[in-house]
């Protein structure tokens, strides 16, 4: 366990180990290798940020570059999943969902139900999400809430390298369609990752930090913002419990509710815009199922209801900061 690798390397390793283990696993996406049909190097990019680098030569014929045609190849991944493969399709930026959503939410997500339980669609859609790259409104969104809304989809938002590897392996082995969302700011995050293969189960929240005063539920990159806030608050004598649900669908409701039963105070940190978000979803859940335990109003900490701005001056304001989390915790702690 002593080995530290990055979030990006952890994802590459998960793909590598599953491709080695199971010949039915293929990957496809725009420039997953890069250089197809061009006179220069093959596997020139290995994905736009290099996440799939090296797999093209290691698994001949199983790393497919696609035309820029998300509806075509995402749908092809879904169809291939119905015919015995376990495809992992990369939607470069989750923002591109707009041109291929039908293949995911009307096709893949609904096959099993519409077909009376006689179909299974073991497809994984990987996509980058999140702000912080100065990539502006069409390359920075945080849309896991949209997928979470759809019955038939599972939605995974790893917050660290260990979870990224184990959750991706679980995603590939899972027999349902899985949306696997990678925060681009986390790609360089290092952490302890076992060399061996392992799976992290869906629907099992990680209690990242224990505390009795305030529960903070956070998703993806926001887990780290929450931990920074919790460490600062510890020095002020406020002990936060930080919960990373790891998957938004299925959602580990019990761990959240048990924690709020203990603390009576809840802050939800969500990089999405606030309306119909995971923040409002968790707030609704807790208001309904742990109402009696609440000692203060639930505080959501989210992006504002605006598109992601370009200028660093604005984008830095857009992303929920550790300071914003800290302030929210203090508000719920001091509420009388």
């Amino acid at each position: 366990m002593a080995r530290k690798i990055t979030y990006q390397q952890a994802i590459n390793e998960a793909l590598d180990q599953e491709m080695a283990r199971d010949a039915s696993v293929i990957i496809m996406g725009e420039d997953n290798a890069g250089g197809a049909g061009a006179p220069g190097e093959e596997d020139a990019w290995g994905g736009v940020l290099g996440v799939t680098k090296g797999l093209f030569h290691k698994y001949p014929g199983r790393v497919l570059d696609t035309p820029i045609s998300e509806s075509g190849y995402v749908g092809a991944a879904v169809g291939a999943a119905c015919n015995g493969l376990r495809p992992v399709a990369e939607l470069m930026f989750v923002d591109f969902i707009g041109v291929c959503f039908d293949q995911i939410y009307n096709q893949a997500a609904k096959f099993r139900y519409m077909f009376g339980g006689k179909a299974q669609t073991p497809v994984v859609i990987r996509a980058m999400y999140g702000a912080g790259f100065r990539a502006a409104a069409q390359h920075s969104q945080c849309l896991y809430n949209m997928f979470t809304h759809i019955p038939g989809l599972k939605v995974v938002v790893p917050s660290n390298p260990y979870d990224a590897k184990g959750l991706l392996i679980q995603s590939i082995r899972d027999n349902d369609p899985v949306i696997f969302l990678e925060h681009k700011v986390l790609y360089t995050m290092e952490g302890d990752v076992p060399e061996e293969s392992y799976t992290v189960p869906f629907g099992e929240a990680n209690v990242v930090r224990e505390g009795d005063d305030v529960t903070i539920v956070a998703f993806g990159r926001m887990v780290n913002q929450a931990l920074l806030a919790a460490a600062a608050l510890q020095k002020q004598g406020i002990h936060c419990e930080v919960i990373d649900p790891r998957t938004t669908s299925p959602l580990d409701e019990d761990t959240i509710l048990e924690s709020v039963e203990k603390t009576g105070r809840l802050v939800v940190v969500d990089e999405s815009t606030p309306r119909c978000s995971m923040a409002s979803d968790i707030a609704g859940l807790v208001a309904q199922k742990a109402f009696g335990a609440l000692k203060a109003p639930i505080e959501p900490v989210t992006a504002p209801h605006v598109p992601v701005p370009f200028s660093d001056a604005l984008e830095d304001l857009y992303v929920p900061s550790p300071a914003a989390v800290e302030a929210a915790v203090i508000r719920v702690k001091e509420y009388r």
Binding site: Y73, G75, A76, G79, A80, C82, L85, P87, Q107
Partner: peptide
């Protein structure tokens, strides 16, 4: 038009296998 990409997928699976 929903079936077009899907059939590319079943054909791809047949080709790979």
């Amino acid at each position: 038009g929903g079936g077009g990409p899907l059939i590319c997928g079943t054909a791809l699976a047949a080709k790979i296998r």
